[in-house]
Each structure stands twice: as structure tokens, then as C-alpha cells.
Computed example of a mutant assay.
Amino acid sequence: MDFGINGKAALVLGAGGGLGGAIAASLAREGVNVALGDINVEAAEQKASAIRAEGGTAVALAWDLGKIEQIEQNVSRIEAEFGGIDILVNNTGGPKPSAVTDQDPALWRESFESMVLSVISLTDRVLPGMRSRKWGRVITSTSSGVIAPIPNLGLSNALRISLVGWSKTLAREVGRDGITANIVLPGRIATPRITFLDEQKAKREDRKVEDVSAESVASIAVGRYGDPKEYGDAVTFLASANAAYITGSTIRIDGGLLASV
């Protein structure tokens, strides 16, 4: 199937990590020129190098989502390199595990700026270009916690759900400009983040990590953790020309983890 995005340009945030890196690699396999942004530029460069080794086009950028002032500089560089951003994948890191109560207001503010305000500000920066070309994709990766809040991820549960309302509203505002806006929810995808969360849960409950992971796997309909490539490929489909009629949606990529309808 021809996804119709060969030669398009994408910016993938958090691309040095497991999910973002998999998304960038999948887009590159479809001929998309990819900019990989991450606070860990060395990790982003490793992912970009792997893409280039397979014949793709990729550049890595140091990107601290807590610093809104970096947006203009980085987007301008991508525009100079690729001529514009057609596909924006908003993928932010999650805060440390925590309760939702008794958190320092400064932590709430810092988390909001890096997880929510950065996404909104960046999207506002790239939308004029998408509108002028009458084509664009805004895909925001959040968490299954927006459907079923995850214990001990209070900050994430509270903040990420605001992006769902924002994306749904955005879809109606830009739909007639040829731009779609969708939310994707990862379930238990086999990344370092999931390994970390399993380890933290095991530590809190004084259990073996293997037992925690097995319990988690047992709750998933397909009986396993997801492969990051599967997540990346699903996002790439949403970025494709074939998905032009999918917008304002919240799509679960979770192997049937979430029990709700």
C-alpha cells in the first residue's frame, strides 16, 4: 500500500526513546524526511544514524520541551532543511511516578509546561505552514491513563487528559484546511519506560519484577507487551494520505489492555 507521504517532512518529539524512535523509523521507511527531537541529542542522533544507514533522511536536534523558547529556533532549522513540517508527532516524556496529592505547585507547573504547553505552542508554530499547503497531520501520543488512570502516575493522568480535549477541539478548527488531529494511546509497549515502571511497582510492593511483568501481561488481551515497531507503524498510518478521514479520534494501541468500551 502506498501511504502517499513519500517526500513529506515530519518532526517527531521524544525521538531518542523507544516509542518516538520507532515512529521516526517507520515514517522514514515510507520516504518521509524526519527530524528527531529529544533532550538527549545523543540518543536522537543514534536513531537518526540508523535511519540514514537504511537510506532514509534524518536529522537530530537537541530539544528540551521545558524550554518553549527553543521552538522557534528548532522549527526554523527544520524548515530550512526540509522546506516545512507536514507531519507533527507530539510525543513527550512522562513525569516520575507520584501520587496526585501533596505535590509541589512548582512541579505541577514544570510538568504542565513540558507536557502540555510545549505541545500546544509547537503545534501553533507549524500550523500556518500546514494550512498554506492544505495538508497536515498532528498526532499526539499520550497514555492509556487518560482512559483509565494509572495508579501512582498522578501527574501524568491529570495533565495528559487535557491534550485529549485540545486535540478534539483542534480537529474541528483545522479540518477544512486538510489537516487532521488525532490522539494515540500506547498500552504496555516494550520500551525502557515500561521496564522502569515495572521495576518501580515491584519495589513499592516488595515483589519480583518478573512477577509484576507477568501480572501485567496477563491483563492484555493478546497476552504480550507490544513491539515499538507496531506502535510506530500505527502512527505512520494515521500520518498517511490514506487516513485523511480519520480526525478528532482517540486511538488505542494497547493490545486490548483497556477493558472499557
Rank of each mutant, 00 (worst) to 15 (best):
M115Y: 05
L163N: 11
I147Q: 03
S111V: 15
A148P: 15
E113K: 10
L127N: 06
L155F: 08
I183Q: 02
W166A: 15
E215R: 07
M115F: 07
D198S: 07
E205N: 06
Q200N: 09
D124R: 09
E110G: 13
E199W: 00
T180K: 01
S156V: 14
E173I: 03
R137N: 07
A214I: 10
L107V: 14
T180P: 05
G154W: 11
S167Q: 13
V116D: 14
V212G: 05
N182G: 07
G93E: 00
V100W: 05
V184Q: 01
S141E: 11
R109H: 10
G165H: 14
V119P: 04
T101A: 13
E113F: 10
L107D: 14
I161Y: 09
V119N: 06
P186L: 02
A171N: 11
P97G: 02
S213M: 15
F196E: 00
P151E: 01
Q200W: 01
R133T: 11
T123M: 04
R137M: 07
A190E: 03
K201M: 09
I189P: 00
L127M: 12
E199Y: 00
E215V: 08
S118K: 00
T180A: 05
R133M: 12
M115I: 10
S143E: 12
I139Q: 02
M115E: 08
I179A: 09
P186W: 00
L107F: 14
P97W: 00
V209C: 05
L163R: 09
W166Q: 15
P95G: 03
T123E: 04
W166Y: 15
D198L: 02
V212R: 07
P186C: 02
S118I: 01
Q103G: 14
K96Y: 03
R109V: 14
E205D: 09
R204S: 12
P192T: 00
S132Y: 10
R188N: 06
S213T: 12
L170W: 03
N152A: 05
F112I: 13
A148W: 15
E215G: 06
S111P: 09
L163S: 10
G165M: 11
A158V: 10
F196M: 01
A171P: 11
Q103I: 15
K168M: 04
L163Q: 14
I147K: 07
T101W: 12
W135P: 06
S144V: 13
R193A: 03
P128F: 07
G93D: 00
G175Y: 03
N91D: 07
R109C: 10
V100G: 05
I147P: 01
N152F: 05
I161K: 11
A202W: 08
